[in-house]
Design a protein around this nucleic acid. Structure first.
Lengths: 155, 155
DNA sequence: GGCAATTACATCGCATGCGATTAGATCGTA
DNA sequence: TACGATCTAATCGCATGCGATGTAATTGCC
């Protein structure tokens, strides 16, 4: 019997933790975070700091606003995080000349120097899963698609 | 040209945030968390409290150890969380009679009463993604599989 | 039985996430 | 050009996650 033949109430009745996409994503995300931890610790980065540096490794410089859009994190999360990166000498923070509301963030040489090691981490993770790169890519795309649909729903 | 023809270094060179399975899982997990927030707020639960209640809705009662294994969260995370559930009158906490090291956790009637509403939330999320239930189930299974392989790797 | 090793839970400190709010800069419009 | 609306960061408080550590109970091995 297909799940399509069941009412929402009947589906809810059979709902368990191990059938929930949210828990699968939540626990997988944390498992990947744990996988990265020792690698990132060598670089003195936490995982959220790492993805912020990923943006800077790609673009060289950005703004708080653009970083917020890209990482889908608010300034109340990013402000202290970026200040820590600045304290570590990895980025610079300065008000934008044309619009004083914007905060320009740029990678320092020291920050850019971490790129080579940092960009290997996702490759190592993919290898550790035992999956093909194509399989990982497809999973990544479907997850991003689901996320984008949810974000669009939230307006 | 397939990614299989590239060396890890060449792949790392092309690595961007939007190609990383970790960021897809991380951002999707948070998007789902944000989707749940208003629903869970009606019940007075946070997302981690919700998945803890999911275990109790399934099993009625458990122990801190079993809950820790099931949610893949340590006692340093769960102890304060379960104490909050106890303070809210949703669970009881008591030392196990046979092994004083174990902490028995049981849902109260008030806690069990939230099951009907709580189990609808994942169904609503699946509907909001616009995907078929089968598609969500497949994505869930592949994510859980990837997570389990990573956890096994970590020993 | 005795006792070191192991196990289960708890405490502490630090780094997120985020709702609510504030401060300052810019925009839009009468 | 005034000035209220909007936008961008930042601050604060609360709830996770988790490494490091502590404590009490149990186990295992002699």
């Amino acid at each position: 019997m297909s799940v399509n033949n069941l009412s929402p109430e009947e589906i809810a009745e059979q709902m368990t933790l191990d059938h929930m996409i949210c828990f699968a994503a939540y626990s997988a995300s944390q498992a990947m975070n744990r996988f990265y931890r020792p690698i990132l610790e060598e670089m003195g980065l936490t995982y959220p700091q790492f993805i912020a540096m990923m943006v800077l490794w790609e673009d060289g410089q950005t703004t708080m606003k653009a970083l917020s859009d890209r990482l889908m994190l608010e300034s109340n999360t990013l402000t202290p995080l970026v200040k820590k990166l600045e304290a570590a000498g990895l980025v610079t923070r300065a008000r934008n000349k044309d619009d004083e509301r914007l905060l320009d963030i740029a990678a320092t040489e020291k920050g850019m120097a971490l790129k080579r090691r940092g960009c290997m981490a996702p490759v190592e993770l993919a290898a550790a899963t035992g999956e093909t790169l194509e399989g990982v890519v497809e999973l990544q795309q479907r997850l991003a698609n689901l996320r984008n649909k949810l974000n669009a729903k939230a307006d």
